[in-house]
Amino acid sequence: MALIPVVEKTVQTNADKSVDTSVDTSLTAAGGGPAVTAEEVLRRRRRQDPDTAPLWEILDQVCDPEIPVLSIWDLGVLRDIERTGEHITVTITPTYSGCPAMTTITEDVEAALARAGFAEVSVKLTLAPAWTTDWISAAGREKMRAYGIAPPVQRSHTVACPQCGSDDTGLISEFGSTACKALYRCNQCLEPFDYFKCL
């Protein structure tokens, strides 16, 4: 992951973008993806901390059980890693309130660190700030698309078909195979697909 410079202002909405000229537009993902917030830039910087850098890499192997191509880092579920002596505290946050994957993720985090020789691990669950799809990394969005799930876009953008790329798509149901996805249909290639909702 490329290190992204900290910008002065936090970009959150499209309305902000149109008036805020101080924002480096290279931070705005194409195709309706989110702009990178200063908070998110700080999270990415945490990876460079020499004390915990190898731990972040170990946890890159822990994937979301429901979308196994996405690591918990890509998804933005992995918030922080702290190390005090031998003790490691990993902070994660749920995507949706009812996300049934948190228990599995907690166990997978502990197992991954145990395999690497770290026995003293506690996994902390935090609710605030509330998870947002803006935290999904650019690489994560690409992996998601390749896996057949359309990544989240701002509401003003159309949802492109992950199979053929067509913009000619329509909503079938607000909820797809899991709470975080909606079900769409492509009018071009006629395939149904999951869309990861913008939350």
């Binding site: 009812g98 149901s173 079900l183």
Partner: peptide, 20 residues
């Protein structure tokens, strides 16, 4: 089917909220 799934997903959100 789609509405069955949607209703159950809404249910899951409510139960997740209850757990918190």
């Amino acid at each position: 089917l789609e509405e069955d799934i949607a209703t159950i997903n809404t249910s899951l959100d409510y139960i997740g909220r209850a757990r918190m």
